[in-house]
Design a protein around this nucleic acid. Structure first.
Length: 437
RNA sequence: CGGAGUGUAGCUCAGCCUGGUAGAGCACUGCGUUCGGGUCGCAGGGGUCGAAGGUUCGAAUCCUUUCACUCCGACCA
């Protein structure tokens, strides 16, 4: 993509409405624009990031055996009346009437709808377990949206729902998601700590929030200092094996959200206790038969008996992650994208657009990098060199390939790693090899 | 939902107190200049001052109403 043709409206100054760093940088880099309070349009640069994040989530869900569906944003109120949540949800739910004066709503979540789909289609224990997910926009009419896309009213969320025959099966489904979440966040370059969270109606320990430590986080969290040095990374996993040992390993160090942390009961020595703030990027939850019973979602068991399905739900804030990743990875100059979610792999800077040699060299690089499967943003504008450097640092692409007349005269180009700031002078072939290795 | 603010050019803001022909910087357009970390100069274009009422000879400015947005708190992926 040529930057001269790319729709990326940057701002030199920070709009007054943006308070936290991720919001400021997303606006300045032209990733998003606010449409209304807590509602955002995603411009090309931001949308590419959103899709990268969603794709990682998708791949890890698929790997765990979950299957992708797509449910609508608009739902009928009837189902929500059946579960009694139509009234319980209160003003957070955006209620709409259609032309026939029927009560509709913009879905804040999908338990009712997925349960309805499931109960209408699955009748036998032989069809369990199942795990269905979708990545869809949700709306919760927050009293006070803030922090840009991190706390919007409309947000993109991956949510899925597991259906099992018994509690042991539900536990296994839960464990699968636990591991899948570790893998998902690790692939985005994030350290997301699984923290004990408020449990569902069946109690136990079957609820965890996945939290990124950040000073700008919206909730207070407490954890063993050991987490600060822990590399959260789950390797290849056989999802059919017993996952209890793996989950136990990842939960042995203390970690709890504010409402779960009891200073009286916490046995951790005070010098091992880290208290800070965190951003919730995922939440997994087992709720047993909370929806299957009132909505009569049951299958016939091997002895002909009725069995209410054991369910769990699991969420990842996809649009929130775009902001959270920036909170976790930036410097004074701008965003520092982890390679896996960067909107482009390489920022190619032609320092002297219009100069025949520079143009030819830059175009050649562009073609070869694209041919090697890399995505490239080519700054071919006739701006000053300094302006191009600052632009590239702001949007935070992992690699900057700098082509200028001075270097070219010596057959060299410069390669800069955004994350470390390290630059090296390389021959053209060396630079290509390094970027396509 | 309680409390506090802000709405003037695409962005950051001044002007309002004390009413009298709408401003600056950045951005944008043209020309020249410069060219390896936001070059410099000259000349331009762009705003029914959030909206509606009112007071006044005259309202961005004073009064009333209303809408939007932001911040603090309580609540949430």
């Amino acid at each position: 993509m040529r930057l001269s043709k790319f729709f990326m409206p940057m701002l030199r100054e920070t709009p007054a409405e943006a308070q936290i760093v991720s919001h400021r940088l997303m606006l300045r880099a032209g990733m998003v624009r606010q449409a209304a309070a807590g509602i955002y349009s995603w411009l090309p640069l931001g949308f590419r990031v959103l899709q990268k994040i969603a794709q990682i989530v998708r791949e890890e869900q698929d790997r765990s055996g979950a299957q992708e569906v797509l449910m609508p944003t608009i739902q009928s109120a009837d189902l929500w009346r059946a579960s009694n949540r139509y009234d319980d949800y209160g003003k957070e739910m955006l209620r709409i009437k259609d032309r026939h004066d029927r009560d509709m709503l913009y879905g804040p979540t999908n338990e009712e709808l997925i349960t309805d789909i499931f109960r209408n289609s699955v009748k036998s224990y032989r069809d369990l377990p199942r795990n269905l997910y979708h990545i869809q926009w949700k709306f919760r009419d927050e009293v006070r949206p803030r922090f840009g896309v991190m706390r919007g009213r409309e947000f993109l969320m991956k949510d899925n729902y597991s259906f099992d025959l018994d509690t042991a099966g539900a536990r296994h489904s839960y464990n699968k998601m636990f591991i899948a979440y570790l893998r998902t966040f690790a692939r985005m370059g994030l350290k997301a700590i699984p923290m004990r969270a408020e449990t569902g109606p069946i109690g136990g320990d079957l609820s965890h929030e996945f939290i990124i430590l950040a000073d700008t986080g919206e909730s207070a969290v407490y954890c063993d200092r050991g987490w600060l040095e822990t590399n959260v990374l789950a390797g290849d996993t056989d999802y059919e094996q017993d996952l209890n040992p793996a989950v136990a390993e990842w939960t042995k160090l203390y970690a709890a959200t504010d409402n779960q942390h009891d200073p009286e009961a916490c046995t951790l020595p005070s010098d091992r206790l880290h208290s800070g703030r965190g951003i919730e990027v995922g939440h997994i939850f087992n709720f047993g038969t909370k929806y299957s019973k009132p909505m009569n979602c049951a299958v016939v068991g091997p002895k002909g008996e009725q069995i209410f399905v054991e369910m769990g739900s699991y969420g990842i804030g996809v649009s929130r992650l775009a902001g959270a990743i920036i909170e976790a990875s930036h410097d004074e100059a701008g965003i520092i994208w982890p390679d896996s979610v960067a909107p482009f792999d390489v920022g190619l800077i032609n320092l002297r657009s219009g100069d025949a040699k520079c143009d030819a060299a830059a175009d050649d690089f562009y073609r070869k990098l694209i041919a090697a499967g890399k995505s490239v943003l080519h700054d071919d504008r006739t701006e000053s060199a300094g302006s191009k450097f600052i632009t590239m640092d702001l949007i935070g692409l992992p690699w900057q390939l700098i082509v200028g007349p001075r270097g070219l005269a010596a057959g060299r180009v410069e390669l800069k790693r955004r994350k470390t700031g390290a630059r090296e002078e390389l021959s053209i072939d060396q630079a290509l090899n390094k970027l396509t290795a």
